[in-house]
Structures are given as structure tokens and as C-alpha cells.
Design a protein around this nucleic acid. Sequence first.
DNA 1: TGGTAAATTAGACTAATTATAAATAAGATC
DNA 2: GATCTTATTTATAATTAGTCTAATTTACCA
Lengths: 219, 219
Amino acid sequence: MSSKIQVALADADVLCRVGLSGLLAKISDTEIVGEAGNTEELLRILQDDHVDVVIVDYNQPKYFDYTIAAQIKKISTDTQILVISSDSRRERIYQVLEDGVSSFLTKQCDENEILDAIAATAKGEKFYCHKILDMIIERSFPSKDEDCTPTSLTPREKEILTLVAKGKVAKEIAAELHISPHTIYTHRKNILKKLQLTSPTEMVVYALEHGLIDLQSLN
Amino acid sequence: MSSKIQVALADADVLCRVGLSGLLAKISDTEIVGEAGNTEELLRILQDDHVDVVIVDYNQPKYFDYTIAAQIKKISTDTQILVISSDSRRERIYQVLEDGVSSFLTKQCDENEILDAIAATAKGEKFYCHKILDMIIERSFPSKDEDCTPTSLTPREKEILTLVAKGKVAKEIAAELHISPHTIYTHRKNILKKLQLTSPTEMVVYALEHGLIDLQSLN
DNA sequence: TGGTAAATTAGACTAATTATAAATAAGATC
DNA sequence: GATCTTATTTATAATTAGTCTAATTTACCA
């Protein structure tokens, strides 16, 4: 077995994989063990070969989703995960970070930043780009003026927001949760007030922006 | 001046640009004149240098949008445009194709397909990947069972759908358009019927999927 | 010039929602 | 343990939004 760092590329877009290969070629002690265009392919690689680092974009519906980190860790605990994604949804990002992702970049990061991140992750260190670092800090020390509203919703409110955003009307939600329609009205009113929205349709936009639902999952 | 084909890369993600550079390196008679991470940078390149082919992803809000083809043609009429995007919104794609895009790929296309497309576009030929070709054919010969519903909406209905999707309620729309709320109700009912939807919130999802509105423009 | 589709609206009716108020339960704090 | 807060739940009455039916106007096409 080679002593080089074994890297697996997981991205639905072949273009990004080519880009990553190109960048990895500049780091001498790394070696690509495999490329995966979807979750299934990635898990197969992890089962068949030893992988030190997985570079993955989890925000590619149908190919990779936010559960990918947990799935990777389940098969191969010691594999380090480097995320390169364009996701901007705070809650989703926090969730992924909690699932054991070592490093997190956006696809907008420049070349040097990506190279540094790959090198750091390979060595077992963590690396976060500025945008993600800001989010982590914001979570630890929330500022007053710019509050992170999604967390201010109660679990029940989030649940109802999700259902509203999926196009269900109050009566349907009430039937589904076995509670009174009035309860839905109250929750919905509180949600609208908390988020400073005025109509249920605005809730859809809000839910989409904050990753409570996503377009693909609605079909 | 070199006799090689001058190519400009326009993609907000550095990773994709690296990927494209890597692929272009395999085509001997091409040369990269410049890389642009946003519209402004691209237009500057077009003004300063001769560009035969622009490879661009127009679906990157804040960096590139669907008007990019028209903007490119305005500065440099003879420049061929190769789109590599992940957009799945029919109407938007038709629009871009009408703006003089020579070739259209998705980022999911495999390496050979991308190489062929670049080579073809550089020679002044057109190249469409299967997914896009299917859409073009579907537009020319619409099938009965799977009708392309967005076009079946009247202009007024589209207008109202857009406003509904922006979170406005019937009364607000009525005030804005100086017509009776009843008119809005009627239009909305007809839209829901035509699109086989059941609630205004579903209209938001529909409008997003078909590019009538986009998340970024709502803020 | 009659036919067709689009856009508009009203009246009567029904359903959905709000306002207000309040009960219950769980957790934290003192 | 008593109390305070927050989350969750619900109801009645009042209000608003929306549907159904039907009809009018406009514009454009054959």
C-alpha cells in the first residue's frame, strides 16, 4: 500500500471533480483512490479501499445530501471529511459540522485556500473558510441586531412551518397532527410574528432559504 | 496574435474554472485568454481581448445571470457562447438559447461530452447535451400527456402568479394592479386549475421551479 | 361579423382566519 | 415546593378571504 494520503472525490459534477484532481496534483503526497458522482459510488469506494480524506459537496440533491457525513463516518470512522459546497443555509451547515466534518469550504474560495484546506485536512487538522468561520462565531456569540431567527422557533413551530411550506393548509395539517385547526392558526400566527412575515406564501420562501425544506424534496 | 482559439472562462466557482482549464489543456489548439468570476470581469476581458469562445454558467446569482448571453453578444458579436450550467428551468433555458447561445451542457455531462462540445463550439458548430436536446424537441413537438404548462398561462395569469409567489395576498395585488380582488380570485383559481395545484403556497414552489421568480431576487 | 379567448367584475354563499382569552404541561429559578 | 416562564393546546365570537355562478367587456382572428 502506498504511503501517500488517499483521497476520494465525491461530487456530482464531473467538472468539479476534474478541478479537484487538478488542484490535488499540486500537492505531492496525495493520491486519488476514486471518484464518485453519487452517494452509492462513494460508499462503495469507502468499503473497498482505505480512504484518508473524502472531499464532498453534500448539497446536490439526488446525488449527495446532508446525511453524507454520518454515512461516511459509519463505514470508516477515521476518514476525514472536507466539504466544498455552496450551501448558505446556516442550520444545515451547523448540522453538517456536528456530524464530524473536519473542514468546510465554499466553491467560491480561491485556489490557495482550497489547497491549504486539502493539505490541512489530510494532516488531520481542521480548516474552515472565512464565511463558515463567521457562522461558527455567530453561533457561539450571537449579536443583538442580527439575530439568527430560525433557532427562535420552537420545535412545534418549525414542524408546522415545514408543513405550511409544503403547500398544506391549516385543516390538513391539523388532521395530520391530530390537533385542532385553531392550534395551527395560533402557531402560524406566532411564526409570522416571530419572523416578521405577513403571509403563508412568504413562509415558503423563508423555509426554502433556511433549508427547512428544499425544492427537490417537494416532488 | 496567436492562431489558437481564444477561450474565456466565466464561472463564479474557481473549482469549475480549474476543471475547465484542465479539460481545455487536452485540446491542443485552444488557449485561455482570461478567467472571470463575475459578469464585470468577463465584460472587461471581452473589451480588452479577442475572444472566440466564452464558456459560462449563467445560473449563478450575483455573479452571472441569464442576461449574460445578450451582454456578451452586444460587446462581441462573433464570440461563440458555450453554456455549462445546472439550470433545469425550461423557460429560462429556452430564453438563453434564443439569446444566441451556440452550445449548452449541464455540469453533469461527462468529460468526453464536454470536450466534444468545446471543440465543436470553437469550430463554430453547435452542441447540445441530451437533456437540452430533449427540451428543444419537446418544445418543437409537444407531447400530449406531458404538456409544458408554463406557456399555457396567459400573460396576466403569469403576472399574478409572480405576485402571489412573492408573498402578496389577493387584496394587495388587487390594489397594485388597480383591479377588483375578485379578479385576482378568479385568475388565481384558473392558475391553480391549469397547473393542477391546490394552494397558493404551492404556487411559490411552482414559480421557483420554472424560473418565474428566484430566491435571490426576493430580498 | 360572428366566434373565441382573455380579462374583468358582482352577489350570494362558504370557508378560512384572527382576536381574545384561557387552560394545561414542562422546566427553570428562587 | 412555590412561582415564573415558555410551549402547546383549545374555544367563542368577529372578521376576512375565497368560491361559485354568472355575466360583461375587450380584443383579435377567421
